[in-house]
Design a protein around this nucleic acid. Structure first.
Length: 214
DNA sequence: CACATGATCGCCT
DNA sequence: GGCGATCATGTGG
């Protein structure tokens, strides 16, 4: 099956995202990397390639925008005050796992879990750019990112380091990183203004209002 | 560009 | 029952 009623979003990646990570010589991050400070990881994975294998074909996109969510102390995080429910459970897994949730009843958002097992922090993957030739705004936003790659809540809890169909590959080159407050978390009190959003200043695929892209 | 609105439903109180 | 870690569209400047 390609689509379902509950999830109008195709579960198959956009064919325009096909690429070959091994041919490009890309290597994966280590488990320890994902256990580092969440802010460090959020910045370090800008420029990395998120990849999904479907029907034997690899599809991927270069991450250009992320947000850090700092667990129990962060009013904007789903794990705020240590909240622990079935939905949020993947956030408590070891670094390198995926946490995917549904917002507004229709869009999926993907996060890479950070820190050791039991510490519920994560990095939201907000935007990416596909291989050469891909429309700049195809993955410019957390919902669009998941839609283009066909990521749904079915992927929540998956380990990016298990050798499965979802992986994150190191990028290369230096990146000029911009910083701003996070988007869409105005309800979070003072945490709403924390500078936890990171983006590639030179990318045309960053999401959000223009004033937050410089 | 900024801002407003509707869509749509799982999750938590 | 209420409300989102969003998006596309429509209005006005």
């Amino acid at each position: 099956m390609v689509t379902s009623r509950k999830n109008r979003v195709a579960t198959v990646p956009d064919p325009r995202l096909q690429f070959d990570p091994t041919a490009l010589g890309l290597s994966q991050f280590s488990r320890d990397f994902f256990r580092h400070d969440t802010v460090i990881v959020a910045q370090a994975i800008i420029g990395s390639w998120f990849a999904r294998r479907c029907r034997g074909q690899w599809h991927g996109a270069r991450i250009v925008e992320t947000e850090a969510y700092l667990g129990a102390m962060d009013a904007a995080a789903h794990s705020w005050r240590g909240r622990r429910t079935p939905r949020v459970e993947p956030m408590y897994e070891d670094g390198g796992h995926l946490y995917v949730f549904l917002v507004y009843g229709m869009h999926s958002c993907a996060n890479v879990v950070t820190r050791p097992t039991g510490v519920a922090e994560a990095v939201l993957l907000r935007a990416a750019e596909g291989p050469e030739g891909t429309p700049a705004r195809l993955l410019s936003g957390p919902g669009k990112f998941c839609a283009a790659l066909g990521i749904t809540v079915a992927a929540s809890g998956v380990d990016l380091l298990s050798g499965g169909d979802l992986r994150l590959f190191r990028g290369d080159g230096t990146i000029d990183i911009g910083i701003s407050k996070r988007i869409g978390v105005e309800y979070a009190g003072e945490a709403a203004d924390w500078p936890l959003r990171f983006f590639d200043k030179n990318s045309a695929s960053v999401s959000g209002p223009l004033r937050l892209r410089a």
